[in-house]
Structure formats: structure tokens, C-alpha cells
């Protein structure tokens, strides 16, 4: 984010205004987060505690892993609507390869835990590769292609469990999904790890630069000799892998693997990225934005529980917050495009 802040700051007289316009997408979510924390802290005695902070982080950790992959996709101005369905299918797949208790009536294929995890990761890769093929080779818009993959993944889930519920996973998945280390849930640690690695990749590697440049101006990237299709294929595969890993940890986190259990994660993951300020038009934003977005969502969901609000009203409030974030997101882009000056 440092590179973004330095340039317009030199604009002199209109400097402060230019800086605000440029940083609107970064400032607005932080402001929202602080406002929500202040509000819930006054509204409820049980909200502003260390235990509840851990609680919030735990609640967003699985969403967070999905949102990491989605950040890559949205930065290239594409979208992945299959994330929740892929998470679900992959979570079920890992259970399918594990020996289940006697009372679970699934005709599954148990195998050694390591092999099960590897095969499951391969299945996540396969979903990503399918999406990438459709989008970059055939030319199907990602919006539609990932809708189809969502349906396919849901079909895979349904076929594997056939309405049943699985309860056992390889040991490593169980530990990482439901265990803790030094009192911190593994899912939080893993989510932070994913966020950190993704940040380094996006900001400090060549691949990350390509992701931003392809998102900023796809045509210019192509005329600069960047292999745009390879970048798009990569981000779609990264997204599927993140979703798959989130799905594996998620079934252990929930303690069960069944159909439709990830349904709310699609909207949550997209909301986290967009509320955080990553541009829907690509090229702007990043992992810091996603972190803020996750926290806004986590604080909101958790806080609304603390103040005993009508659970139906809660859904409406989430919708309104998302709408507000979209308005800021698009408005920030419009302001920016009027930006530095008209071309001379």
C-alpha cells in the first residue's frame, strides 16, 4: 500500500483532498470497523473482551481462508461464485476418503490419512483447473462459468454423501480444524498464515505485480507481453485451492460434513473482500483490505448477537451494510478515474 500513498501526496495544494479521494476505499472500511467496535462496546458489556475478540477471529477464520483466494480473483476483475460450493465438495471429499463410524451409511473409500488429504487437494485443484479452462480457453465469462462449477460442485457433494452426514476426517484435518495451540484455534493461525503469505505474494513477487497490472488494465498488460490468460488461470486455481482447504478445515470445525453447510460462506467471502475496499473493477486493494473487511463482517455478526437483536432484522442489516460498501467501492473508482488529470 506504500506505493499507492506516496504518489498523489505530492499534488501540493489539493494534496489532502487528492489523498482522501485516492484512499477512500482504504479509509472508509477502517472508519466503519472502528465505528462498529465503539458502538457494540457501549451497547453490550460482554462485547469488548479478549475472549470475545478470539471468538470473532475464530468465527471469521474459515471465511478468511476463502476470502484470500477470492482477493486474487477480484483483483484481476474476475469473480468466483463457486467458492462455497467447492469448499463444501472438498470438505465432503476428505470425509469420503476416511473410515466413518458404523452408524454412518455412506459407501465410501477409506484410505490412509495422508493419501486422503493429497487426493482431496487434487480434487480442489481439479475444480480450479476446470474453471480456468472454461474462462481462459473457451472464453466463458467467470461469472457464468463459476456459476456452472458451483452447480457441479454441489452435485459432487450430493452424490458423495447422498443425504447422509459424515463425522470422521484424517487426524491432521481434525487437529487443524478443531484443535488449538497455546489456547489459539489452529484455524485462526492458518488463516493468518494464508493472509500473510498472500500479502507477500501480491506485494513483493512478480506474479503479484502481474495480478495487479492485469486487473488494472487487461489490454495494456496484453500489449506489454504479459501472459494474461496464464495469470487468470492461476488466480482461479488459487481460489479453488483456498476454498478447498477452507472446506477441509471447515468440516472439522463444524464437526460434521454434509450438503449445503457452507451456503452462507459465498456471500460472506465476497462481502469481506468488497467491504474491505478491494475494487470490483480490479487492480486496487489487497490483503489489508480483506483483513479489515473480515473484521467488519465478524464484528457485525458477533455484535448483533450480543445486543439481542431480532435475527431476521440481522439479515437485513447485513444486506444494508453490504450495499453501503458497494456504493463506496464504485464511488471510489469513479473519483479515482476523474483522478490525476485528463490525458494531455
Amino acid at each position: 500500500m506504500t506505493a499507492e500513498t506516496t504518489a498523489p501526496a505530492r499534488a501540493g495544494k489539493g494534496g489532502l483532498r487528492a489523498l482522501l479521494v485516492d484512499q477512500l476505499r482504504n479509509i472508509a472500511p477502517i472508519f466503519t470497523l472502528v465505528a462498529l467496535i465503539v458502538f457494540f462496546s457501549f451497547a453490550s458489556a460482554s462485547f469488548f473482551t479478549v475472549a470475545n475478540a478470539m471468538n470473532i477471529m475464530s468465527q471469521v477464520s474459515i471465511t478468511g481462508i476463502i476470502a484470500v483466494g477470492l482477493t486474487f480473483v477480484i483483483l484481476t476483475a474476475e469473480i468466483d461464485l463457486s467458492v462455497a460450493a467447492v469448499a463444501n465438495a472438498v470438505g465432503i471429499t476428505v470425509a469420503y476418503f476416511t473410515l466413518q463410524p458404523d452408524y454412518v451409511n455412506i459407501a465410501n473409500v477409506p484410505m490412509h490419512g495422508v493419501l486422503a488429504v493429497l487426493l482431496t487437494l487434487a480434487s480442489a485443484f481439479a475444480f480450479g483447473a476446470l474453471t480456468a479452462f472454461g474462462v481462459t480457453r473457451i472464453g466463458i465469462p467467470s461469472f457464468i462459468m463459476t456459476l456452472a462449477v458451483m452447480q457441479i460442485a454441489n452435485g459432487v457433494s450430493a452424490l458423495l454423501v447422498r443425504g447422509q452426514i459424515a463425522y470422521s476426517y484424517p487426524d491432521i484435518v481434525t487437529t487443524l480444524g478443531s484443535g488449538s495451540i497455546f489456547g489459539v484455534r489452529w484455524t485462526i493461525v492458518i488463516c493468518i498464515l494464508f493472509l500473510a503469505v498472500a500479502h507477500v505474494v501480491l506485494r513483493y513477487t512478480r506474479f503479484g505485480r502481474y495480478v495487479y497490472m492485469v486487473g488494472g488494465n487487461r489490454e495494456a498488460a496484453e500489449y506489454s507481453g504479459v501472459n494474461v490468460k496464464a495469470i487468470l488461470a492461476s488466480v482461479l486455481i488459487i481460489s479453488a485451492m483456498c476454498s478447498g482447504i477452507a472446506g477441509m478445515l471447515g468440516v472439522a470445525y463444524f464437526g460434521s460434513a454434509q450438503q449445503n453447510q457452507f451456503d452462507t460462506f459465498l456471500l460472506d467471502a465476497i462481502a469481506a473482500v468488497v467491504v474491505g475496499g478491494t475494487s470490483l473493477f480490479g487492480g486496487r486493494g489487497g490483503i489489508f483490505n480483506t483483513i479489515i473487511g473480515l473484521l467488519v463482517l465478524g464484528v457485525l455478526n458477533n455484535g448483533l448477537d450480543h445486543i439481542q437483536i431480532d435475527s431476521f432484522l440481522k439479515i437485513l442489516i447485513r444486506g444494508l451494510i453490504l450495499l453501503a460498501a458497494l456504493v463506496v467501492n464504485v464511488y471510489a473508482q469513479v473519483l479515482r478515474e476523474r483522478g490525476p488529470s485528463a490525458d494531455g
Partner: peptide, 15 residues
């Protein structure tokens, strides 16, 4: 067609 308007000059050159 080959320039990134909002990016600094050095990123335009190095891409």
C-alpha cells in the same frame, strides 16, 4: 492500449 494510467511511470516501464 499499452499504458496503465493510474500506475507510476516505473511500473509502466518495468511490466
Amino acid at each position: 492500449m499499452m499504458l496503465f494510467r493510474t500506475e507510476p511511470v516505473f511500473k509502466n516501464v518495468s511490466i
